[in-house]
Amino acid sequence: MAESTFTVKGMTCGHCVSSVTEEVSQISGVRQVDVDLPTGKVTITSDEPVAEDAVRAAVSEAGYELAG
């Protein structure tokens, strides 16, 4: 198992959290997605390390962007 943490900009409510969780969960090998709304931190537990490009694309699909 691998764990990765990213920061998402622009989330303001529970719907934002749901959208990001749904899109990131669709990345191959992702087992769990935990979103901390106040900090924007998204922690991904997966079978293998997740490529940042895949996370960036999923977050973008949800309507947000990664910080940095």
Rank of each mutant, 00 (worst) to 15 (best):
residue 60 S to G: 15
residue 42 V to G: 08
residue 59 V to M: 06
residue 9 K to P: 00
residue 34 D to C: 00
residue 17 V to M: 03
residue 21 T to S: 13
residue 53 D to V: 10
residue 47 D to A: 07
residue 41 K to C: 01
residue 5 T to Q: 13
residue 6 F to S: 04
residue 2 A to D: 11
residue 22 E to A: 15
residue 2 A to Q: 09
residue 32 Q to L: 12
residue 30 V to I: 08
residue 47 D to K: 07
residue 9 K to Q: 08
residue 7 T to N: 01
residue 38 P to W: 10
residue 37 L to I: 13
residue 2 A to I: 03
residue 61 E to P: 01
residue 24 V to A: 08
residue 67 A to M: 04
residue 55 V to P: 12
residue 67 A to F: 05
residue 36 D to N: 15
residue 15 H to R: 11
residue 13 C to K: 00
residue 10 G to D: 05
residue 18 S to C: 03
residue 64 Y to C: 05
residue 27 I to V: 09
residue 46 S to M: 04
residue 29 G to E: 09
residue 14 G to R: 13
residue 9 K to H: 00
residue 13 C to Q: 03
residue 53 D to L: 07
residue 27 I to D: 08
residue 54 A to N: 15
residue 30 V to T: 10
residue 59 V to I: 06
residue 19 S to G: 11
residue 27 I to T: 01
residue 10 G to A: 05
residue 23 E to Y: 00
residue 64 Y to Q: 10
residue 55 V to K: 13
residue 33 V to N: 08
residue 43 T to F: 15
residue 14 G to I: 09
residue 51 A to D: 13
residue 39 T to W: 10
residue 3 E to T: 14
residue 44 I to D: 04
residue 17 V to F: 09
residue 68 G to S: 02
residue 62 A to C: 11
residue 42 V to W: 06
residue 49 P to A: 12
residue 66 L to H: 06
residue 5 T to P: 11
residue 13 C to R: 00
residue 29 G to H: 04
residue 38 P to H: 11
residue 41 K to A: 13
residue 61 E to A: 15
residue 27 I to Q: 04
residue 28 S to H: 08
residue 22 E to I: 02
residue 23 E to W: 00
residue 3 E to F: 12
residue 22 E to H: 13
residue 15 H to A: 02
residue 3 E to W: 11
residue 48 E to K: 14
residue 44 I to L: 06
residue 66 L to Q: 03
residue 22 E to C: 04
residue 68 G to A: 06
residue 35 V to R: 09
residue 31 R to W: 00
residue 5 T to K: 14
residue 32 Q to S: 14
residue 52 E to S: 06
residue 39 T to V: 08
residue 12 T to H: 15
residue 66 L to E: 04
residue 7 T to S: 01
residue 43 T to I: 12
residue 52 E to H: 11
residue 13 C to T: 04
residue 2 A to M: 05
residue 26 Q to V: 04
residue 37 L to A: 14
residue 29 G to S: 11
residue 54 A to R: 13
residue 21 T to P: 01
residue 3 E to L: 09
residue 4 S to N: 15
residue 21 T to G: 02
residue 7 T to D: 00
residue 4 S to Y: 02
residue 61 E to M: 01
residue 10 G to W: 00
residue 39 T to L: 09
residue 15 H to I: 06
residue 34 D to Q: 12
residue 3 E to I: 13
residue 42 V to R: 04
residue 1 M to N: 05
residue 63 G to A: 10
residue 67 A to R: 13
residue 10 G to Y: 01
residue 33 V to A: 10
residue 65 E to F: 02
residue 10 G to H: 01
residue 10 G to Q: 01
residue 58 A to I: 10
residue 1 M to I: 04
residue 65 E to W: 03
residue 59 V to W: 12
residue 39 T to P: 12
residue 4 S to C: 03
residue 34 D to K: 07
residue 60 S to Y: 05
residue 62 A to Q: 07
residue 34 D to H: 05
